[in-house]
Design a protein around this nucleic acid. Structure first.
Lengths: 89, 89
DNA sequence: CAGCATCCTAATAGATACTG
DNA sequence: CAGTATCTATTAGGATGCTG
């Protein structure tokens, strides 16, 4: 479910609260809009996050973890700890 | 580091002790020998497991987690718990 | 037994340009 | 702003046959 280069990182960003498309793109650094859209759609279809469109000008789209998505915190936290204890050379 | 369809499953199998190539292949079900080899080599190069060849006839090759690999238990355990709490429909 | 060699497909991801 | 469209590159994975 967390497969792919970006999926885990996207979930991590959303753990600290809802984010807009542009915020996610900036936080992830070098992800292309296509890839970000692909991954967000996949997570949405799996029920991990929701996509909310605000019909404004300019448009605003907010991504937010579902209850189920939020429960991934424990997994992400275990990964964080492992990464801190085993830094890459 | 755990990227790919099989990597996490391979590590999981090795958490319960060293395994031979054939044991891993059988435990994983439908993995092709090429893919299994690829993933094992990748994990070996990352220092997660060791590959030991016994020069016998027939040959025997044993894969075993390193100390570093064994510390992945906490991550795998968090994943296991999540999976049990969120079964797929 | 534990693979290696070779060829193939599918999916992820990136680059770039364009749009409601 | 938040995408979409199109194209290309890379990689994971599979199928099949062969071998030390």
């Amino acid at each position: 479910m967390l497969d792919g280069k970006w999926t885990t990182l996207i979930v991590r960003e959303l753990l600290t609260g809802p984010k807009r498309f542009g915020e996610l793109r900036d936080a992830l650094g070098t992800v292309s809009p296509k890839t970000l859209t692909d991954r967000l759609r996949s997570l949405e279809h799996q029920g991990i996050l929701t996509r909310t469109v605000y019909a404004e000008v300019p448009p605003r789209v907010v991504y937010e973890l579902t209850e189920q998505g939020a429960t991934l915190t424990t997994v992400l936290h275990a990964m964080l700890e492992w990464g801190e204890r085993h830094p890459q050379p």
